[in-house]
Design a protein around this nucleic acid. Structure first.
Lengths: 130, 130
DNA sequence: TTCCTATACTCTCCAAAGGAAAGTAGGCAC
DNA sequence: GTGCCTACTTTCCTTTGGAGAGTATAGGAA
């Protein structure tokens, strides 16, 4: 390990490798394209129904929307409320935990907005080099 | 870099849909399991060689490591340096842009560490409900 | 000489994940 | 009866990803 101590806050410094494994596993699940996009829409629009989310999240299939919502429900990120009416009405709403994850991802959205141009330029340069 | 105007972020503020599409696309690429884990290791360990990363990132295949590193290089997140020696020596190092993404994801790692127990409990509860 | 090693890929084959579209349930209006 | 509505569920097929073998190269050992 290159032991260059950082002056700024390093969240990884005092970590038990067992915990690190679990965190990596969790990151692997949560840092999924669809989870992120669903999270974003639920943050933006509040409680949503199934078809509303299908419309809001660009390009998601019904299968993946169902899977993503189930996984998020299992992880306690959102609550699924079934209204026993016809036609069916199911609402999805972020929990406190879901909101806290949304806030944690805030920095990433800001980063993406801020650096869009820079990345497109980097890609052009890379592609030009062959 | 006009960072001053972006200090606060209101997710409910109206956003140009064209920009939103591009940001979603970018999130979809960057919010990939392997990209995140590689980014984390490069943040933690600084400059790394190929096999070093293969060892550090748990469970990644050589193919995916190559693909991930190429994509990150194309996006300007890291620099790939080839030393013309035998056996080959290639070093990967984050750019400023890569570091800034790492910092943006800082909140997510902290969140994951903080909420591990809560999520495991949520999963157990969900599985117990059937 | 031939063999072996080390590194960073690269290729091949197969299993798993994911997308598109059709099917299901079940009251209600007609 | 037929059609309609929503939230899935199933089927089929394409794409992605993983496991492992192969490649190029120079120096050192046998």
């Amino acid at each position: 390990m290159p032991a260059a101590e950082k002056i700024s806050y390093d969240p990884h410094a005092p970590v038990d490798p067992r915990v690190e494994t679990l965190v990596n596993e969790l990151i692997g699940r949560v840092a999924d394209k669809w989870t992120l996009l669903v999270l974003e829409e639920l943050e933006d629009h509040g409680t949503c129904r199934f078809t509303e989310l299908a419309r809001l999240v660009p390009g998601i299939s019904q299968k993946m929307l169902t899977q993503t919502l189930r996984a998020m429900e299992r992880d306690g990120l959102l609550v699924r409320t079934v209204h026993p009416v016809v036609p069916p009405k199911v609402e999805y709403c972020l929990t406190d935990l879901g909101h806290s994850l949304g806030e944690a991802f805030c920095g990433v959205w800001i980063w993406a907005e801020t650096n869009l141009d820079r990345i497109e330029r980097a890609r052009s340069a890379f592609d030009a080099r062959g």
